[in-house]
């Protein structure tokens, strides 16, 4: 479980997060949705500690992350996997080296154990045989899958995904969504996904938090969205005329 308790964040006088309190459940795919510039990326980066919040507290299970010093945070970070929007793979390393890096730095595994673990993670994201390639030689979908493999290589308890479907075609997006969803269930991870993709919301969104102008505007499940009367949420989720018609039919 990850819990944010009244967190706020300001950049150069502009309030980006305003008194947000939210809880993300273990073993579920939790989604943060909102318009561009609504503050959802800042929320995600604040949760993982890439931004320090101005006020409020963040808890990873029972541990207050915001109260920890550098060493304490480092121990929690080893339990965190994160998939960045662009993949954020190390350009100068091959797929295998990228996935293996956390094992090299934080485990005492033997060479064969590391090789087996990397092979397992690559097979889990269906990338067996691509281990010798460099990031520049991969397609967008492959980059995201390597990022997932790297994120899960240390068996994380928390998985953060920043717009994992951006720049991908609808079919590949579904593959990535299902992969993240399956991994969440398989390893009972607390997963938080930051997304614009309404297909993801309706496919894998078990808990959805809508951020609007730095405030938590709404939260619920994918089924609740269909019934919601919240005008801002409806304008965002059902932006097109076709989506509005779909909603009225569904209701």
């Amino acid at each position: 479980m990850i819990r944010a308790d009244h967190i706020s964040k300001t950049f150069e006088g502009r309030t980006v997060l305003n008194d947000i309190s939210v809880e993300f459940d273990t073993g579920k795919t939790n989604l943060i949705i909102g318009r561009s510039g609504s503050g959802k990326t800042v929320l995600l980066k604040s949760l993982v500690g890439l931004h320090d919040v101005d006020s409020g507290r963040i808890f990873f299970d029972d541990v207050c992350y915001t109260d920890l010093d550098f060493r304490g945070r480092k121990s929690i970070r080893k339990d965190i996997g994160m998939i960045f929007q662009g993949g954020a793979l190390l350009d100068s390393s091959t797929v295998r080296e990228n996935v293996r890096l956390p094992l090299d730095l934080f485990t005492e595994m033997s060479e064969s154990e590391k090789r087996d673990r990397v092979d397992f993670c690559l097979s889990r994201v269906r990338l067996t045989g691509a281990d010798h390639l460099y990031p520049s030689e991969l397609s967008g979908g492959m980059v995201k899958r390597v990022a997932i493999a790297r994120a899960i290589v240390l068996n994380p308890r928390y998985l953060f995904c920043d717009e994992p479907n951006s720049g991908l075609d609808p079919q590949t997006s579904v593959v990535i969504d299902n992969l993240i969803h399956d991994i969440t269930k398989e390893f009972n991870i607390t997963t938080i996904i930051n997304t614009h993709d309404m297909n993801s919301v309706m496919e894998i969104g078990e808990k959805i938090v809508y951020i609007h102008e730095g405030h938590k505007w709404w939260e619920g499940s994918k089924d609740d969205i269909l019934l919601s009367e919240n005008p801002e949420l409806n304008d965002f989720v059902f932006a097109s005329a076709m989506a509005k018609r779909a909603k009225s039919v569904a209701r």
């Binding site: 890439l50 970070r77 965190i80 793979l89 730095l105």
Partner: peptide, 9 residues
């Protein structure tokens, strides 16, 4: 990429 390294601890 630097953020990714930091997240890994």
């Amino acid at each position: 990429q630097i953020d990714a390294l930091e997240i890994m601890g």
